[in-house]
Simulated assay, not measured.
Amino acid sequence: MCLVLTTSKAYFSSVLQYLEQHGVSPEDALCMLKEDFSDLNNADVRVSLESYEKLLCLGESLLSDRLFGFHLGQDIRTADFGVLGYLVESCSTLEAALKVLLRFDSLVADIAVASVLHNEHYVEIRWTPKTQTNKHVILRNMTAWVAITRKIVRSDIAPSKMNLTVALSGHERSLLEQWFGCEVCTKQQYNALIFPTAFLYLSFDSKNPDLYSTLTNLSESQLTALASSHPYQDKLSHLLEQTPNLGEVSLDTYAIAFTLSPRTLQRRLQAEGTTFVRMLDKERKKRAQRLIVNTSLSELSNLLGFNDQSAFNKAFRRWFDQTPSTFKKSMDRC
């Protein structure tokens, strides 16, 4: 299935507005992209990830700013997130805001999968692009999340740590650490913000229960329209791909990431013609074929989440109609 990855008109247009503040007219910027943007006047238009990436790269070039995405994220405004921005503002706590952010993030930019892991001490928000993208896309998103939260709670709260998949120079990383107020680790396996669980209970002065209800209903309607071309199985597939050890996965874990009950997530997968078990089996098969050459069979069995070697051997024969050892020998000869 070919995914059409897009951003909202508001999120894309906010880049043009930022460039205009720095002396580049929107008309000139769009002309330099050499694409037809005549439909930007349409309120419902979505802009492709490719066009969004090109605009961010153009911004770096025009402003000679290697941290363009970071500076763009610092400048984020509620309106840049569209309806979601005002919905986040109307929440009562950061925990409530996080739930709607995870639920409706695709309305702003349907280009990644957002998920959350937490325990009694820390919360970790992961943001995993659905395809390889440039550093400015990642920097803007991760920075904007912190910037908008600081504006709402009116405090320069700092994460405990931030992971980035991108490579940065020592000077660039130092600038980020100064602003975020925490350690920034680059060239990591995934993008993540880690902060104390206590932050979840930070209260929002801008809370508005009536507005929250109205905007939640509107966001649900918008998400339904968008989800018709971006089913749950695509998002779950990306989450599975980003999980290092498949022994740690469960339907319950991913249901939390989608802010759904396990039963509801299973029903939605079934409506799309698949199940969690089937998707896990598919990821195991794909990973087994990729890793078997340079991985011992016992280690591979553990990485794929099998309780014992015999279960792994049985699944492998079902996938490839031969034993793992026979398959490995044939690959070694290639």
Score class of each variant (00 low, 15 high):
Met1Val: 14
Met1Gly: 14
Ser8Thr: 00
Phe12Met: 08
Ser13Asp: 13
Ser14Leu: 03
Gln17Gly: 14
Gln17Val: 09
Ser25Phe: 00
Pro26Tyr: 06
Asp28Met: 11
Cys31Leu: 13
Cys31Val: 12
Asp39Ala: 12
Asn41Phe: 06
Asn41Ser: 12
Asn41His: 08
Asn42Pro: 02
Ala43Asn: 10
Asp44Ile: 01
Val45Gln: 07
Val45His: 06
Arg46Gly: 04
Val47His: 08
Leu49Asn: 00
Leu49Met: 09
Glu50Gly: 10
Glu53Ser: 12
Leu55Cys: 05
Cys57Ala: 11
Glu60Asn: 07
Glu60Trp: 03
Leu62Met: 10
Leu63Ile: 00
Phe68Ala: 01
Gly69His: 02
Gly69Lys: 03
Gly69Ala: 05
Leu72Cys: 07
Gly73Pro: 02
Gln74Phe: 02
Gln74His: 04
Asp75His: 10
Ile76Arg: 07
Glu89Gly: 05
Glu89Pro: 03
Ser92Phe: 06
Glu95Tyr: 00
Lys99Pro: 00
Leu101Glu: 11
Leu102Val: 05
Arg103Val: 04
Asp105Asn: 15
Asp110Pro: 01
Ala112Thr: 02
Val113His: 05
Val113Asp: 03
Ala114Arg: 12
Ala114Trp: 08
Ser115Gly: 13
Val116Ala: 06
His118Tyr: 12
Asn119Leu: 08
Tyr122Thr: 14
Gln132His: 12
Thr133Asn: 08
Asn134Trp: 04
Asn134Ser: 11
Val137Tyr: 06
Leu139Phe: 02
Ala144Glu: 12
Ile152Val: 14
Val153Cys: 09
Val153Ser: 03
Arg154Lys: 15
Ala158Asn: 15
Leu164Ile: 08
Leu164Lys: 07
Thr165Gly: 14
Val166Asn: 02
Leu168Ser: 02
Gly170Ser: 10
Ser174Asp: 09
Ser174Arg: 09
Trp179Leu: 06
Gly181Asn: 06
Cys182Ile: 00
Glu183Ala: 11
Cys185Trp: 05
Thr186Ser: 09
Gln189Trp: 11
Ala192Ser: 15
Phe195Ala: 03
Phe199Cys: 05
Phe199Lys: 04
Phe204Ala: 02
Ser206Gly: 06
Asp210Gly: 03
Leu211Arg: 13
Leu211Thr: 10
Tyr212Ser: 02
Ser213Asn: 09
Leu215Pro: 07
Leu215His: 02
Leu215Gln: 01
Ser219Asp: 03
Ser219Gln: 03
Thr224Pro: 00
Ala225Phe: 07
Ala225Trp: 05
Gln233Ile: 10
Leu236Glu: 00
Ser237Glu: 09
Leu239Phe: 00
Thr243Phe: 01
Asn245Ile: 11
Gly247Asp: 02
Glu248Trp: 04
Thr253Leu: 13
Tyr254Trp: 02
Ala257Ile: 01
Arg268His: 10
Leu269Asp: 00
Gln270Phe: 00
Thr274His: 01
Thr275Gln: 01
Phe276Glu: 01
Glu283Cys: 08
Gln289Glu: 15
Leu291Val: 00
Val293Pro: 06
Val293Tyr: 12
Leu297Lys: 09
Ser301Gln: 14
Asn307Glu: 15
Asp308Val: 05
Gln309Ser: 15
Ala311Arg: 15
Ala311Ser: 15
Phe312Ser: 07
Phe312Thr: 07
Asn313Ser: 15
Thr326His: 13
Phe327Ile: 14
Lys329Val: 08
Met331Pro: 03
